[in-house]
Write a protein that binds this DNA or RNA. Sequence first.
DNA 1: ACCCATTGATGAACAACGTTCAGTGAATGC
DNA 2: GCATTCACTGAACGTTGTTCATCAATGGGT
Lengths: 165, 165
Amino acid sequence: MGTAQRRAREKSEIRRRILDAARDIVKREGFGALTVRKIADAIEYAPGTLYLYFENRDAIARELSFDGFRKLLDAFAPAMRIADPLSRLEATGRAYVGFGMEHPETYRLIFMEDPQLTTAVFEAAGDDPGQRAYHALLDPLEALKESGRLHRDADVQALADTFWA
Amino acid sequence: MGTAQRRAREKSEIRRRILDAARDIVKREGFGALTVRKIADAIEYAPGTLYLYFENRDAIARELSFDGFRKLLDAFAPAMRIADPLSRLEATGRAYVGFGMEHPETYRLIFMEDPQLTTAVFEAAGDDPGQRAYHALLDPLEALKESGRLHRDADVQALADTFWA
DNA sequence: ACCCATTGATGAACAACGTTCAGTGAATGC
DNA sequence: GCATTCACTGAACGTTGTTCATCAATGGGT
């Protein structure tokens, strides 16, 4: 009876442990040091076992990045409910900076360690968390532009990067 | 006598062939497929030989990226001589787009294939070509902002990314 | 209570990678 | 003509991601 449920619980439990171990490694040694064998070591499993839970190494990295974006999106949530575009932008920017201050490791994880994924966000189709977080910043700027309050040639993504740089 | 000069000439000739072969591979198969062995194959040398001309694989990739940025900077040059910030910005943006249209392979090479280097540009110290190209876009926007013609919260790097996305 | 099928985990093996280095053979300078 | 320098080789090392035959245990069906 309950065995199927227990199995499912164990399965996702191990997935979680894999991701936790992977996150640890990335935070400590950077994305480049994220190795299948190193993760396996950390959770005391054989390397091959990870492939029962993830398609490949990239799938793990992607999941890690998505988790980070989800966190970022959560941080944006309150700001995004503001109606006025200008205030919304300011609040979002503030949330952005705040997030960077409060979770520096996650911040690094998302934006500095795996550029492949960061740029993938800008091209990605669909509604992954990265895409949504990106639009959280983009959207109010475009609203401002359309309402004529921003110069027509003004650029939209720069705020984020200026803050961040 | 002249043998030393001939040697130097041959040496840089081979460097050039390595970079050409590398560029070909990146354009055809992407940065991920840029392999020391593949370059060596293309120029019909042994893998180890490349290490007589470059410190390592990354040095080759970096050089490739720098070359691309140099090209981009050349494309910016005329626009950057314009005094008025607004016109300068517009011309620079136009040059940027034009560059993307005219040299799509180089464009991809710089901005889409090796995100590691692309983001490195934003942090890099010193005056490498990438840094300078970046400032070519940033500078007029900041000038605009300071002169009060752009909204105080307006963002600076977004133009580039909007174009490019 | 037994058996067998399903399942999770293993770890050896493979191909490809970057990088190193003892050796080779030809060109160079005396 | 000889010794030395030089570019080059290619085998080798360690590490990577990934696969797969094998094993052990677990859990239902009889």
